[in-house]
Design a protein around this nucleic acid. Structure first.
Length: 655
DNA sequence: GAGTTTGAAACT
DNA sequence: CAGTTTCAAACTC
């Protein structure tokens, strides 16, 4: 079909052409990040950062963009691209590719962590990483790397490692900016050690043949980011998530993952592994089967928080003004240390939110009581647990237990706090003012804490209580069950009935809330696509400040729903893309093609699309409306593009 | 650091 | 599904 003259002609007529690349970073970001901010805890923040990287990446190595084997449309596009790629950077198809990959990226981001819950062990395999998916993507990237290197070399005898690495990192597609950063740091370190040789792409490939050895050696790396990364990796190295690790090049990623038992234990634990995967893969081998890592990125969130801490420090420097006003969620207060040093120290000591330690004595760390286990990570040294089974050695036990728990409650490992993207999308800026845009999945059941202490999961997660909560005397500073978010009234009310001591504490809380409100009001009221990224970033940059505790992290982006959404979204992407391709054609055909896939892939049937609480329980992105909105927004950002592109409406009916 | 409080998780 | 028990984090002193 792609060979068809008609097809080519249509392609050449694509209305997208005019838009072409986005010289202006802002504009570029605006294109992709129209997605709901609240849903993603982390990656979002650096959306613009990431985007730019993506943009670059896809321009430099076009073939890396659309290679999702599972997506016929994309594949087709890929072919067409390769056929015409020479044309020009501005080629429509490239634009499409970029768009597609960005969508993919977004999808991944949206879906972030989580648990494939539902026990669907094949979930992972269903989460392809389009840009890197098919054979060669990475090789190409490697070649690009080589080029870069050659370039550098040609210019001077002593390569500019920094720029080289920087370029390299740009060429690689990371699951997250953090991973990219980590990669960069790592490479820099290596370069400085003069041991690492970027003599050629091959070298790059052999740098880290296998797993953790290199990572272990990373200990020597002074870069905090890497150090943190390393620590995280070491600690969270859940075996069941290392599929890509031991895998060699695979022609079919999906198949590989499916055949890998490791892929079977998906769930949340992925986070740190994700980083591991991404960093390792990037570092070690461009030709490595990256798809899995890409897929695994699902869980980056949590792990990201660690690196993010580091990155934030930098980020904070550039956004001092804004950040100073950014409130911190109570739950994260402790992390909001005034001095970066302090923060670092704390993180180093393993007390970062992402570096939970448990102290289990009777559960063997095999129950949800255990924070580590619940978070899907192995316990590590810093943990004070007794008789711990949550260790790689007992992988089998861990996996079995997880399965068992999941069978009992498919959402057991899903994030507890759901950042409701929908509300954000629908209410626009209002959402940014509504702390309640995120909710605890199941709600709390507090009786005595008034939802004002971390005993309360809602409060701990930095979200308000909702109708789902069965709490008594709710005074959640983030929003009460009755819907009223805390305000001066509440403050007074509370003051009246509390001792001076508690009053002080509450005052503090209220201040925080007020500050938060203030910060929100500072946000652009009319989030134009261009500012969108800012909106998204703000919370992030404030960092992890705003980043809720583990659960939230997971919830933020993650979760079991992830897979769902991805499944659901993927079709969206292809659909949209295909539509773009044949803008003047009917879409029915596509719909017919995709539908089955959607149905088949919908892994987590239990994800309460039915439940009244479905919206909250299920990851926001899963909702077709959500993705639709996202796409719609995005399209909105792409000004010219959508003019001749069939609107989304058609998507909904197909679902 | 020990003891208490609290509410989620697990169990019945 | 409700009640009870277990558990470990959060909190207090």
């Amino acid at each position: 079909m792609q060979d068809s003259p008609v097809f080519n002609y249509i392609n050449s007529l694509s209305p997208i052409r005019p838009v072409r690349s986005i010289p202006n970073p802002n504009q570029f970001s605006s294109l992709n990040f129209t997605s709901p901010p609240s849903v993603f805890t982390s990656p979002h923040l650096n959306s613009s950062h990431k985007e730019s990287r993506f943009f670059k990446t896809h321009n430099s190595s076009s073939s890396s963009s659309s290679s999702d084997p599972t997506n016929p449309v994309e594949s087709r596009e890929d072919e067409s691209t390769s056929n015409e790629d020479v044309v020009a950077e501005g080629d429509d198809t490239k634009d499409l590719n970029i768009d597609a990959s960005m969508r993919e990226e977004e999808t991944n981001r949206d879906d972030s962590v989580a648990s494939p819950c539902g026990g669907d062990t094949t979930d992972l395999s269903l989460v392809p990483y389009a840009p890197l998916g098919e054979n060669g993507s990475f090789e190409n990237a490697g070649m690009e790397l080589q080029k870069v290197y050659d370039n550098v070399q040609g210019k001077s005898e002593t390569p500019d490692w920094e720029s080289l690495i920087s370029d390299a990192s740009e060429l690689l597609i990371f699951d997250s900016p953090d991973a990219s950063e980590a990669f960069r740091c790592f490479m820099m370190q290596r370069a400085s050690n003069s041991e690492a040789r970027f003599s050629n792409g091959v070298e790059v490939q052999t740098m880290q043949p296998d797993s953790n050895r290199e990572l272990e050696s990373a200990n020597a790396i002074p870069y905090e980011a890497v150090s943190l990364l390393h620590r995280g990796i070491r600690r969270r190295c859940l075996d069941f998530e290392m599929p890509g690790n031991k895998q060699t090049l695979s022609e079919n990623n999906t198949a590989t993952c499916e055949s890998s038992s490791r892929c079977v234990v998906p769930s949340i634990g992925l986070h740190l592994n994700a980083i591991l995967m991404s960093s390792k893969d990037c570092k070690s081998s461009i030709s490595h089967d990256y798809s899995c890592s890409g897929k695994i990125q699902v869980g980056l969130q949590s792990s990201i928080s660690t690196l993010q801490e580091t990155l934030d420090q930098t980020e904070n420097e550039t956004r001092e003004d804004a950040d100073q006003d950014v409130p911190v969620e109570p739950a994260l207060q402790e992390l909001n240390l005034s001095s970066p040093k302090k923060k670092r120290v704390k993180l180093d000591s393993g007390e970062g939110e992402s570096c939970k330690r448990c102290n289990c004595k009777k559960s063997k760390c095999l129950k949800l009581y255990c924070e580590c286990f619940a978070a899907g990570v192995y316990c590590i040294e810093p943990c004070s647990c007794i008789d711990c089974f949550n260790k790689p050695i007992h992988e089998d036990v861990v996996l079995a237990t997880r399965k068992q728990i999941e069978s009992r409650n498919p959402l057991a490992f899903a994030p507890k706090v759901i950042r409701n993207s929908e509300s954000v999308l629908e209410t626009g800026d209002d959402a940014s003012k509504t702390p309640a845009s995120a909710r605890h999945k199941r709600g709390c059941n507090c009786k005595k804490s008034n939802c004002l202490k971390k005993y309360c999961e809602c409060y701990q997660g930095g979200v308000g209580c909702s109708i789902n909560c069965r709490c008594e005397g709710c005074k959640n500073a983030f929003g009460r069950k009755d819907g009223s978010s805390i305000d001066m009234e509440a403050e007074q009310e509370e003051e009246n009935e509390t001792s001076e001591k508690s009053r002080t504490a509450k005052a503090q809380q209220n201040i925080e809330v007020l500050m938060r409100k203030e910060a929100r009001s500072d946000l652009p009221t009319t989030p134009t696509p261009i500012y969108r990224p800012e909106l998204v970033q703000l919370p992030f940059s404030s960092s992890k400040n705003r980043m809720p505790p583990p659960q939230s992290l997971l919830g933020g982006g993650s979760s079991s729903g992830i897979f769902n959404s991805q499944y659901l979204r993927k079709p969206d992407i292809s659909l949209t893309q295909s539509r773009i391709e044949k803008s003047s054609e009917t879409v029915a055909e596509d719909g017919a093609e995709e539908m089955p896939e959607i149905l088949i892939h919908s892994p987590i049937p239990n994800i309460k699309s039915v439940s009244p609480n479905g919206k909250r329980v299920s990851p926001p992105h899963m909702e077709s409306s959500s993705s639709g909105s996202i796409l719609g927004r995005r399209s909105g950002g792409r000004k010219l593009i959508l003019q001749s592109i069939p609107s989304f409406p058609s998507l909904t009916p197909q679902h």
